[in-house]
Simulated assay, not measured.
Amino acid sequence: MKIRPLSIEGAFEITPVVHGDPRGSFTEWVRFDKLAEVVGHPVTMMQGNLSVSAKGVVRGIHYADVPPGQAKYVTCARGSALDVVVDLRTGSPTFGLWEGVVLDDTSRRAVYLAEGLGHGFCALDDDTIMTYLVSTTYNPGAEHGIHPLDPDLAIDWPTDTPLLSGKDIAAPFLADARGNLPA
């Protein structure tokens, strides 16, 4: 397993070893002990989520109040997606910047993002299945979003016609969310 830091502090790309033979493949897709060595603290996950999306669906940019925040470990079980991490921490030197990693069912890469970072993705195939392990359980009063098509973020989504949820369409732009962002 290779763990590589992304350009945004607290975000990492994880590339597991995929063992294949004529029967199929086997992958150890998460090792929290190894991740803890890199991030410098124990990684505890409290809930698992799964989404199924059609090609061109954009989900996010989502984040949770800090504290406690919500760290995420995200991978693609089927299909492929451009997974995006956005730095929403107002005191961070990379505030407002984003980085994307293609996650798919071949490489089995994953992304870990720390509390205070925003997350979203765009499905590149129909029936793309994304799995998320998260450090806190769902708390609707602490969950927030930034409009994924915010021109100030300028995320290069790989679709000409993104399909968004009503919640994501109604999300504020980054400039309008300033008083509600993590520090």
Rank of each mutant, 00 (worst) to 15 (best):
L103V: 05
N49K: 08
L82M: 12
R4A: 13
I8Y: 04
I8T: 00
D150W: 10
L174V: 08
V74S: 04
F12V: 01
P140V: 02
A77D: 03
L117I: 09
V102Y: 03
H144M: 12
V39T: 10
S7D: 13
H144N: 14
G118H: 03
D33S: 14
L133R: 02
G116P: 13
T15Y: 02
V38T: 15
Y138S: 06
P42M: 05
A71H: 01
R31K: 13
D127Y: 08
L50I: 04
S107G: 12
R59N: 08
E28V: 09
G48K: 07
D21N: 15
R78P: 09
P140L: 06
G179C: 01
P151W: 06
C122L: 11
K72V: 04
T75E: 02
L35M: 06
D104A: 08
L124A: 00
D176S: 12
I61H: 07
R4K: 15
I129G: 02
L97R: 15
A81M: 15
F95Q: 00
D87N: 10
G96W: 00
R59P: 09
V111S: 04
S7N: 11
T44H: 14
G145C: 11
L124M: 13
P182V: 00
A114Q: 10
T44E: 14
H41F: 11
R31Q: 14
V74K: 04
G91H: 05
E9Q: 14
S25M: 11
E28L: 11
A11R: 09
A142T: 11
Y138I: 01
T106C: 10
L149H: 04
K34R: 15
L103P: 09
M1S: 12
K2L: 12
W29T: 13
G100E: 05
V57C: 04
H41Y: 08
I3Y: 03
I129E: 15
A170L: 03
A171F: 06
V17T: 06
P172Q: 03
T128M: 05
M130G: 07
D105I: 01
K55E: 14
T131D: 01
V86F: 09
E28N: 05
G56T: 08
R109L: 08
I155N: 03
L163Q: 14
L149D: 04
L113M: 12
A114I: 01
G96E: 05
M130T: 10
E143W: 03
L103N: 02
V18G: 01
V66K: 06
I8V: 14
F26K: 05
F121W: 01
T27H: 07
G118R: 09
G141D: 15
V30I: 14
P16R: 00
K167T: 12
G118I: 05
R31C: 15
A110Y: 02
A11V: 08
T90K: 13
